[in-house]
Computed example of a mutant assay.
Amino acid sequence: MKRSFATSLGMAISLALISPFAIAAPLRPNQPIGEADVLSGKVTRDPDLGYILIGGIGGAMGTFMRVPDEATRAAWEQDRKDALAKAQKKYPGAISDWEATVDMLKKSGNKGPYPEKPVEPTIDNVEVAPLDTRDMVSFGPQFRYTKGARTSFLTVVKPGIYYWVGVPVAPCMCMGTVQFEVKAGVVTNLGNMLWALPQQKLDMTVAQVEWTKSAEERAKAGKPPRVDPFAAPDLDMTVPDSLKNWTVVAAELHAHGKFNNYGAVVVSRLAPIPGVLSYRRDTVIDERTGQALPNPKLVSMQKPKL
């Protein structure tokens, strides 16, 4: 995928219908909410929108992408048609400029190579943002819902199926991740499960292998163990008291297959989660069904780091 899309990671905002139930400024997808606005009544639950709650993990940040639905796909197709119409309108001028340039170079004695002829625009080569990136949402590290000993983030989203991309400019979970559903009018609580549930030791990196060797050597030498930097935190699904009148449900994670590396960062995958996600070499396994997920053809800026 073209690098021009990489800088848009985590910044895609899509407007939704304004609910008559919203107070003050209407909420919109990819909008963070602060606890003070909920406590003051400035923000109330909009039954037409969904919400993602992340918590218990300090100064975190990350990005989710939404599985495109029919409405998103229709809007994307219309954008492609509009972009094609504009490109076709400019194409004759581009050809004239190219012909004039080549003719001038030939007359000046330049034997080439000459500029390549502009490619005729088609629906498949016009540039629009990729379909998968249209409903991206991000959270953190600023605009926290709660601060202090326990940090949380509450983000407004369109209802739908979302999958975990990872942290911007950090490894992308392109080779295997998890997805979950966000329903209208409901706060879907992820707590710290994206960090607490993955079993790192089942999918160890080179650094983890070296740490394990070092820990074993210390144990043999009778030395006290150090804190394991790769140990997963305890699961924390705490819901702030300020959301007690909102409908809050724990996210139900499901395996999600491979996807394109739109951010042009190092490629990785989410560590296995028992009962949810595992791998058979480079194939993603849905542990809920025992089935292997398809291996799609990917367009990536980086080589996989498995």
Rank of each mutant, 00 (worst) to 15 (best):
E77T: 13
A24D: 15
P274S: 02
P304W: 02
F153A: 00
V43N: 05
F180W: 04
A251M: 03
V126I: 08
L39D: 08
G34F: 09
A292L: 07
G191M: 07
M237K: 00
Q78F: 03
L49M: 12
E35V: 14
E216Q: 13
E120L: 00
P240F: 05
P26A: 09
R80D: 01
D103F: 00
V165H: 04
A12C: 09
C174T: 09
R66N: 01
P118F: 01
I285G: 05
L202S: 06
S4R: 14
E252S: 11
M1V: 10
G34C: 09
M136E: 15
K220R: 14
K223M: 14
R269A: 10
D46G: 05
P47C: 06
K297C: 04
G109A: 13
A87R: 12
A36N: 06
E77M: 10
K89L: 11
I273H: 00
L306Y: 15
G10Q: 09
G58I: 01
S242F: 06
P141N: 12
K2H: 12
R280T: 11
F5G: 03
V182K: 03
N30A: 15
P118E: 04
V239K: 04
K89I: 07
L293P: 05
P233H: 02
N295H: 08
A149P: 02
Q208K: 12
K303P: 05
E127S: 14
P296G: 02
L84K: 04
E70P: 01
A25L: 13
D37I: 05
N260D: 15
M237F: 00
S214H: 11
G56M: 07
D234E: 15
E127N: 12
E99P: 09
Q200G: 15
L27Q: 11
Q302N: 13
P240H: 04
